[in-house]
Design a protein around this nucleic acid. Structure first.
Length: 601
DNA sequence: GCCGTTTTCGGCCCGACTGTTTTCAGTCG
């Protein structure tokens, strides 16, 4: 019973409550639990075993009792009773864009959809047979919209198509370039999850400051690479790109653009929390500005941005919007309602790490062929040193994969490692024009039994090692934790690369006993990697925050196999920022001498 | 159903857009 399973179950409860017109705050309570579970780096079942279920944001007495029953006997009687009154076939329909609980139920009921496994196909057949348009509350337009949505769903595009951050940035940039050709756009910003730098992006959100909203919207909806305009009104429009991604654009007057930035950056729960705080101050928040409730201007009326006509304080700058509420400006990466609002109020927001704080990195593969166990890099050391120099780095660590154990004897591996060290030293010595210092390292596999895939005598030829898992991912939590801790115990093993092994949208990654890992790393001076590669971004943002709470050092590496990938470090930095990292938390913000000391060289 | 630096009871965010409606319900962010 994983968090994902629980969320599926709770979503059914939400659908039924919505259908029944249940108290909306009860529904919101379930939605909050779902949101928390989806974001949580920990499995609820693990927390339950430790009696910590109620530590999850949004879980109180009632829901924790339900989950307790679920974990004990595999089902919740109360939920089962609830579900028994509704057709199973309505739930798959909820995944289709435009269908919510009421329509899904109504369609499943009226069209007598019986089998949940074929509900989508059955609904599509009914639509083509013109059966939907005849139903009360539906018409021919909604029928054809449903057909469109179902066809897209069949192509694998659910309500949520999440794409990688770099891909989303690329798509957004193309649209921004296109919008820039329209003279009515005075400012264009990517907002939403893009601005918050989430690891994966659902919709692409853009906002434009303009005095001619309709001109901008007409220009936007005429975007040549769209496949469809979903909606379009005076405040904004939504299109679907040919690849299936949704793009939302909002327009706003420049005098209120700060309010729009705040609103459209989200997250949803950050905004909800902010609005709750505002209500207590007698204020109501929206994308247009801040409105005094009961039309009474408050003592802050000396502020010049008050629009008498609209009874609204308007904000051109986002910073002023937060300040008006008595808060420091909150970096977008923190806006997840995880305590950032309280920190902004108490003036103890973390000073987040920035690109300029990075002084080097340790996980770069070169093209030097040491007949490795895994893939070789494509760029040579000289090229990499020049690149590092251009970035102003003080040092880099080269961490090729260890020589293959299956193709070499121990003594062969030792001579390979010796030759490699000599080769790198020669290259470094012949590159007098770079100031970049070199650490000769290795990415060493942790074998199934926890031993490192390098003979002990070969460690002499490296300064330090990154260790990682590249085989046998299916071990259970206890075994995998032991395996990793054993691997990390070697005195030269200083960093654990891509600690969970996850590949976004491809592989979930293995489970670890994090308390054990954290305390081992803290006590033995080992660092956990934030791998910047967009498919990995591992550790994840939430785990980064946990690691920091546990006083574990982190290191942001790129795992570059080609020189241009060194620039991907920006994505690792984003993860670190989302995990509340300051430069003090990150190993490669330390200057060369300190790093050398830390590596015990 | 949750929650507390105004509360253990009485609150709980704000708005846009669409289709099918004669004033609104459903869905979405």
């Amino acid at each position: 019973m994983t968090n994902k399973d629980i969320c599926m179950l709770l979503k059914k409860v939400v659908a039924i409550y919505t259908l029944r017109g249940e108290n909306r705050f009860r529904i919101i309570a379930y939605e909050r639990t779902i949101e928390s579970l989806e974001k949580s780096p920990f499995e609820a079942k693990d927390l339950w075993k430790e009696g910590r279920l109620m530590e999850i944001n949004g879980i109180g007495q009632t829901i924790s009792a339900h989950l307790d029953e679920l974990f004990r006997i595999g089902k919740v009687e109360y939920f089962e009773e609830l579900f028994s009154h509704y057709p199973d076939s309505m739930f798959p329909l909820l995944e289709v864009a435009g269908l919510g609980p009421k329509k899904a139920y109504y369609l499943a009921d009226k069209l007598r959809l019986k089998d949940p496994t074929t509900a989508i196909e059955d609904l599509l057949k009914a639509a083509y047979a013109d059966k939907i348009a005849k139903l009360e509350g539906f018409g021919s337009k909604s029928q054809s919209d449903i057909i469109d949505a179902l066809e897209r769903f069949r192509e694998g595009q659910k309500k949520e198509v999440r794409i990688s951050l770099p891909l989303a940035e690329g798509l957004a940039q193309k649209i921004i370039d296109y919008l820039n050709e329209c003279s009515a756009c005075s400012e264009i910003f990517p907002l939403g999850s893009l601005r918050r730098q989430l690891s994966t992006i659902g919709d692409i959100d853009l906002a434009v400051a303009t005095n001619k909203p309709q001109t901008v919207l007409d220009w936007f909806t005429a975007y040549p690479h769209k496949s469809k305009v979903i909606e379009s009104g005076p405040a904004g429009a939504t299109i679907i790109l040919s690849g299936g991604q949704h793009v939302d654009l909002r327009v706003q007057d420049p005098t209120s653009f700060g309010s729009m930035l705040q609103y459209f950056t989200g997250s949803k729960h950050h905004n909800i929390h902010l609005r709750e705080i505002a209500i207590k101050q007698g204020l109501s928040l929206s994308e247009y500005g801040i409105k005094p409730i009961n039309k009474i201007r408050n003592s802050k009326s000396e502020i010049r941005n008050y629009n008498d006509k609209k009874n609204l304080y308007e904000f051109a700058k986002e910073k002023d919007y937060y300040r008006f509420l008595g808060l420091e400006w909150i970096p977008p990466e923190l806006r997840e309602d995880n305590g950032e609002i309280e920190a902004a109020k108490n003036h103890n927001l973390p000073l987040l790490i920035e690109k300029k704080d990075i002084k080097g990195e340790f996980h770069i593969h070169t093209s030097y062929n040491l007949e490795p166990s895994h893939d070789l890099g494509l760029s040579d050391l000289k090229t990499i040193l020049l690149k590092a120099d251009s970035l102003g780095y003080e040092y880099i660590g080269i961490s090729d994969h260890n020589p293959s154990k299956t193709h070499h004897t121990e003594s062969e591996i030792i001579s390979i490692m010796k030759a490699r060290k000599y080769y790198y030293e020669q290259i470094k010595a012949s590159n007098k024009n770079t100031r970049v210092n070199l650490f000769i390292m290795l990415e060493t596999d942790i074998l199934t039994n926890g031993e490192l895939a390098l003979p002990n005598d070969a460690f002499e030829y490296i300064d330090a090692s990154i260790v990682s898992i590249h085989s046998n991912f299916n071990m259970n939590k206890v075994e995998m934790t032991d395996r990793i801790l054993k691997g990390l115990s070697h005195p030269k093993a200083k960093m654990l690369a891509h600690p969970t092994g996850r590949l976004i949208n491809k592989r979930a990654g293995y489970d670890l006993d994090w308390q054990k890992i954290f305390s081992f790393c803290r006590i033995n001076d080992k660092a956990l990697e934030i791998n910047s590669f967009p498919d990995r971004l591992d550790l994840s943002d939430m785990m980064v925050r946990e690691a920091i709470k546990n006083q574990v050092k982190l290191v942001i590496n790129t795992d570059s196999h080609e020189v241009s990938q060194i620039d991907l470090i920006k994505y690792g930095i984003s993860v670190a920022r989302r995990g509340w990292s300051t430069k003090a938390d990150i190993l490669n913000c330390m200057p060369y001498n300190k790093v050398k000391e830390w590596l015990k060289i």
